Amino acid sequence: MKRSGPLYTLLGGLLLALFMLSLNATTGTGNTSYGGDAPGAASPGAASPAPTSAEPTSAKPTEDAPSAKPTDSPSKSPSKRPPGKSEYAGRTADDAAAISLSIRDDKAIAYYCNGRDAESWLKGDVEDDGSMRLTGKHGAKLEATLADNAVRGKVEIDKKPRDFTAARAKKPSGLYRATTEVRGAEIDGGWIVLPDGRQVGILKQDGKPQKAPRLDPETGTVPFDGGELTARPVVP
């Protein structure tokens, strides 16, 4: 019986150790005994969220595009009428009459003549685009355009319209006129000298038309009634 004391002590210590082991197993803080995730814990193998930038990046402000330079008002198209003085001479499309134009800058004078009994002087403005509208007595009118060193259009005399083309003329070709008084009679003559040298003209004596005598383009002299007249180039 004397040896039972140490035996009881050993058994008591063993029981105490088993009790402590059992207590640790049931109240431990580990989560593996439940087979689930603790609140707020990340699942094994789950991807971590991508870190957010501490401060947003901002693109470098671009410089303002230079403001468009105000453009000048649209410039006009180059003028089709030559500066200074120019001469044009030709015939109607039906060859019934001759026509000549004298142009200085934006002014024009035209002369229509059939060489016998019909003539007309017309005048007006020439636009920058070469177009022109000339008018004369008794409803005479001319509408044409200057381009490529020629005037092309339509002339209407005595209500009879005719197409015409007048090419650029060089001296002595062109348009001439003489106005004077001889022995109390009023003289008015017009001459068209064509590029090929031919002349078409009418001379009126007190309003009565007749074929004009031939003009000397070099001197401007015209024989008339035993004397001479002087015809000069027409200038608008």
Rank of each mutant, 00 (worst) to 15 (best):
C113Y: 03
G136S: 04
V155F: 13
R116D: 13
A150Y: 00
A147T: 06
L146I: 09
E143Q: 15
D129I: 06
G124T: 13
K137H: 07
T135P: 05
M132I: 09
N149E: 05
D128N: 11
L142S: 09
G136Q: 03
N149Q: 13
L142H: 06
G130Y: 01
G153I: 02
G139Q: 08
Y111F: 15
N114A: 08
D128K: 10
H138N: 08
Y112Q: 01
D128I: 12
E156F: 07
A144I: 10
R116P: 02
Y111I: 00
G153Q: 02
A147E: 11
D148S: 10
K154S: 14
G115H: 12
K123M: 15
A140H: 03
E119Y: 08
D117K: 13
Y111T: 00
E156S: 14
G153C: 01
L134E: 07
T145M: 06
V155L: 13
A140W: 02
D129Q: 09
G130D: 05
K123Y: 13
G115D: 14
G124S: 14
D129L: 07
A144V: 07
A118R: 14
K154C: 03
L122F: 12
K137Y: 04
G115N: 05
E143I: 13
K123V: 12
K123D: 12
K141N: 08
G136K: 03
N149H: 05
Y111W: 09
Y112L: 00
K137C: 00
V126K: 00
N114G: 08
G130R: 02
E143W: 10
G115A: 12
S120E: 12
E127G: 04
A147H: 05
D129F: 07
Y112P: 03
V151N: 06
K137D: 06
T145R: 09
E119H: 09
W121N: 13
E127C: 04
G139E: 05
A110E: 00
A110M: 02
E143L: 06
C113S: 15
K154L: 11
N114R: 08
D117T: 12
G115R: 07
K154H: 08
K154V: 15
A110I: 02
A110G: 03
D117Q: 10
A140Q: 02
E127A: 12
K141Y: 06
N114C: 07
E156W: 11
K141D: 05
